[in-house]
């Protein structure tokens, strides 16, 4: 196998590996459940895309012809990742998992849980955002 193919495959592998690592790092480091959702569900999507792309390139060159079935896994994960994230966020909302105290939009938690529009608590919303804004430097 030509050396430049090895270099390309190694670059994609490293890119994917680093993103997988960062996604899991986010899972450990981020402060509350809602922020933790951001790390793994997406960084891992790109991470796995990198690794599968490396595999695709490698087997295409090695066996001759195009090896595309890795793309199927990438496509599947791209479709399912947002569904998983959405379901977990929804479950957390309905189980009353608290947001980080300094995050904004606390007044939206209650209407979101009951699936109302935010105007249902319009008085609270207005005073809430104003007081939040005034606290900012």
């Amino acid at each position: 196998m030509a050396s430049w193919v090895e270099i390309i495959v190694a670059c994609f592998l490293l890119l994917g590996g680093i993103f997988m690592f960062v996604g899991s790092l986010g899972l450990v480091r981020l402060p509350d459940l809602y922020t933790r959702l951001h790390g793994p569900t997406k960084a891992t999507t790109l991470g796995i895309a990198g690794i599968l792309l490396a595999s695709s390139i490698m087997f295409s060159i090695k066996n001759g012809g195009l090896s595309v079935h890795e793309w199927l896994i990438t496509l599947f994960l791209l479709i399912t990742a947002p569904v998983t994230a959405n379901m977990l966020a929804k479950t957390a909302l309905h189980h009353d998992v608290k947001m980080l105290s300094r995050s904004r939009g606390h007044e939206l938690m209650e209407p979101a849980r009951h699936r109302y529009g935010p105007e249902g608590a319009s008085e609270n919303t207005k005073s809430g955002t104003e007081s939040n804004n005034s606290k900012l430097p």
């Binding site: 796995i48 599968l52 595999s55 896994i73 994960l77």
Partner: peptide
């Protein structure tokens, strides 16, 4: 997801 990557 990590185990998929490990297998690939």
């Amino acid at each position: 997801i990590n185990s998929i990557a490990l297998i690939v």
